[in-house]
Design a protein around this nucleic acid. Sequence first.
DNA 1: ATATTTTTGTTGCTTTTGCAACAGAAAAAC
DNA 2: GTTTTTCTGTTGCAAAAGCAACAAAAATAT
Lengths: 210, 210
Amino acid sequence: MNLSFNIENFINDFESNCHKVKKRVFSKNEVITSYIEKRNQFCILVNGNADLVRYDLNGNRTIVEHFSTNDIFGEVFYTVTTNNELLVEAREKCEVLIYTYDDIHTKCRTNCKFHQKLSECLPELILNKVTDLNMRVELLTKRSIRDKLLGYFSLLSTRTLSKTFSLPFSLTDLADYLSVDRSAMMREIKVLKEDGFIEKEGNKITLLYK
Amino acid sequence: MNLSFNIENFINDFESNCHKVKKRVFSKNEVITSYIEKRNQFCILVNGNADLVRYDLNGNRTIVEHFSTNDIFGEVFYTVTTNNELLVEAREKCEVLIYTYDDIHTKCRTNCKFHQKLSECLPELILNKVTDLNMRVELLTKRSIRDKLLGYFSLLSTRTLSKTFSLPFSLTDLADYLSVDRSAMMREIKVLKEDGFIEKEGNKITLLYK
DNA sequence: ATATTTTTGTTGCTTTTGCAACAGAAAAAC
DNA sequence: GTTTTTCTGTTGCAAAAGCAACAAAAATAT
């Protein structure tokens, strides 16, 4: 993610200077925020892991996005409608900076160091988010469960620079992330093992093809 | 899309000042660019309509993104791998600004007006792209063809502020955009008509539910 | 104006995916 | 350390989606 800024400095800067940013700590399974129209919240995950989840009318749960350290989220990135209830849930202890986006241009012309730094780094932070979202779209447009799994595994393999890697999700969550039925996904994982595409031990996957 | 900058000024500014940005015109069906690792191309669609398409090994075509006036694209937003051939194809005559992103910070400290303007507006342009991508993810995570269609129609209805709207795609392209089989999609449209959810006349759709 | 290509609409059949239900393993809570 | 909850793994059956193929309509090219 080679970001050219250090988020730790962020925290020190804003604590002495800025009253518009709040730092909050959330424990596992807590709801960090829910997306509400026109509030324009903008959040930075300083550390931890969290998911943006949606529950639809059929009771399906979807993990819309998965966030880890330095990821940004909030309704400022989302066209909120009444059809979708969106919650950001902490998967483990999370430290979060919460800010109201309002108008980045006017905010950043105050003398506050935090906003100076933010406006400087925002393009890079958002660019990072865009590439994440594009990879997500790429995965979701795959036509079969098999291709989604292989695509996701290959992504993790590339990221970790290794043929063996552990899943950052439980299998239940992975199904919700790939937007498929869990039992159908389990069946497909079994077939992938039988066909010699992958090996699986606990939550560790090894790719057997080059 | 209420952007606080005018892209027309962009064009005038850079033509007199900047040698690093090229403006090019493409005719219908021309390939505007293909995504190639490490080239870091960044493009602004000044006007026209274009699609980012992927052809997979099974011969499936996917419309990954659809671009219209003021949308931005290029491999700077994409983690390009050898598994995916990605082309941006003009749907109609398109005017495009093509720029190499390289390092936005150093570029923008020259005296070139274009880069000043660009760095100023970039967060807003990208933010717009992020909300588009999030809507796309929302659509793609719907579990059935029916829900994808209804979700997409509802989106168009919201955008046009009307229950009746025309599709910006042919039905063939719509299937590639929703990432589903065309004949299955046609069947589902028929069912939606029979069930009284929609009306369809040519490429105009009317939503019959509130 | 006519020929060619693309798009729309449809259908029968096959394959994939989803649903429901359950048992054992693992993890978390008490 | 025992209980409770969540997660994994599996299966039979039902429903949905994909595939192939074709004809008619519409759009585009010549």
